[in-house]
Design a binder for these strands. Structure first.
Length: 453
DNA sequence: TGGGGTTAT
DNA sequence: ATAACCC
């Protein structure tokens, strides 16, 4: 395909190439996936749990468990009853409060960002890193006679033979070395183990990271791409094809990855829309040009609680106050301010699998200003707003039965970017008195303290 | 199925 | 505001 790639492929003198990342579309991506993350965090918190079968419980579910427990038959998302039956010695810890998991999760992302700033989070326990530039720099440091001494770190998918005359192989091997350094750093600095997959795009990196499973890594060389994607037993195993799309494809008689590869593009586009159809059909060939997008700080903060039954307004208000109190702490830490608040509910016969309803509204500016100060009561006005949203969704004069409440702060804005001026800054106690520790502290773009004696 | 997250429509 | 996707 790409002439630049073909030209580079047989070139023995890597250092003579100019603009290596611009004239080639070949990327090196790593997917880093922590082993049973919540269980690992719990074992670090309490080392006595280390050699015992451990499960992390949320409500009546074991959401994850360590490998001791897995050996004894416990699976992720298993009912507590079933898990105890399978494994009576199972130790359970409650994992409904995500605070420590979230904090550790961001420590991992920040550690990876030290290698290369382009890090995309996927959930709390997975990260993608684009290593293309880093690999290119290391290649340029190598003398041409050192190329023949480059070695792989970890497994090579499908036991494929390495060709050291193939520059793409060399790049991926250097990627595997960086992946090993990342896993070493995660273990040495944070005490965490995990898997890594190195490949030429996000899809393949993610698929290959799971091939050797706990605490190992695998690199995929281009010649084994089809082997990997065709090794999947069902289209639903392709990240990007979820429950709904899989059902839709099954209705068309598409069950295997090969079925999807060979299915009529025209018909698929008519059924799923051109965008989704073209995207997933490319995925079925292992093609994925989506970039690694730096996640940066979160776009939203939310807290939720599920329960068997909530059927009165007072009950709902109490739950909302609990959720809100935790959220206000988190928002205070972040340093930015949310400009929108949302309330989410789930009603009892949750007809749909994901039957949630929500109402949102802007947060009044006088309330925004009080956020993060701790000096003023922000609970009262926020609860008032949330209860109005609640009554907008739920007719409290009629019987109701809710099984979930969630509060979300979103539309986060840095405090000083445009509208806030100098006078405003000096008149707002929160900004001069609140400690904004951490890397998310706002920057004074147009304002400098030196300007004001 | 929990308690989170994201983007597209 | 919802619906899809991810963990």
């Amino acid at each position: 395909g790409n002439p630049a790639v073909v030209g580079a492929k047989n070139s023995p003198r890597v250092r003579d190439q100019v603009l290596p990342t611009r004239n080639s579309s070949f990327r090196v991506i790593v997917h880093v996936d922590l082993d049973c993350f919540y269980a690992q965090v719990e074992m670090i918190s309490n080392p006595e749990l280390k050699d015992k079968p451990l499960g992390v419980q949320q409500k009546y579910l074991v959401v994850t468990c360590n490998y001791e427990a897995r050996k004894l038959g416990v699976k992720k998302l298993m009912n507590v009853r079933d898990a105890k039956e399978k494994c009576p010695q199972l130790v359970l810890v409650n994992g409904e409060d995500l605070t420590r998991y979230r904090e550790m999760s961001y420590k991992v992302t920040e550690l990876l960002e030290e290698f290369s700033p382009v890090v995309e989070r996927l959930g709390f326990d997975e990260n993608f890193v684009d290593l293309t530039e880093m690999v290119e720099k290391r290649l340029q440091q190598l003398q041409s006679d050192e190329l023949s001494a480059v070695t792989v770190s970890g497994h090579v998918y499908n036991n494929q033979s390495i060709n050291l005359h193939d520059i793409l192989h060399i790049r991926l091997l250097i990627g595997s070395q960086i992946a090993a350094e990342m896993r070493e750093a995660m273990y040495n600095h944070l005490g965490l183990t995990g898997c890594a997959g190195v490949a030429s795009n996000k899809l393949l990196a993610k698929l290959v990271s799971g091939v050797f499973k706990p605490n190992q890594q695998t690199v995929l060389l281009p010649e084994s791409c089809q082997h990997l994607i065709l090794s999947l037993n069902h289209i639903k195993e392709i990240p990007g094809i979820g429950y709904k799309t899989a059902k839709c494809l099954e209705a068309l008689g598409i069950n295997s990855v090969h079925d999807l590869q060979t299915f009529s593009s025209k018909i698929l586009e008519k059924e799923l829309g051109i965008s989704l159809a073209q995207r997933i059909q490319k995925l079925s060939f292992g093609e994925d040009n989506s970039p690694v997008i730096p996640s940066g700080p979160p776009q939203s903060f939310s807290e939720e609680d599920s329960f068997k039954k909530c059927s009165s307004e007072v009950e709902a208000k109490n739950k909302i106050e609990e959720l809100l109190a935790s959220l206000l702490n988190r928002v205070c830490q972040d340093g930015r301010k949310p400009h929108t608040v949302r309330l989410i509910i789930r009603r009892y016969p949750s007809e749909k699998h994901c039957g949630r309803e929500s109402r949102q509204c802007p947060i009044p500016s006088h309330v925004i200003q009080k956020l993060g100060t701790g000096n003023y009561d922000v609970m009262t006005p926020m609860v008032d707003i949330l209860m109005k949203l609640f009554r907008n969704m739920v007719n409290v004069k009629m019987p109701f039965h809710l099984t979930l409440l969630s509060v979300c702060f979103c539309n986060l804005k840095a405090v000083n970017t445009a509208k806030r001026g100098l006078i405003d800054y000096y008149l707002t106690p929160s900004l001069s008195t609140t400690s904004c520790s951490g890397k998310h502290s706002f920057k004074m773009k147009d304002t400098h303290m030196e300007d004001f004696p």
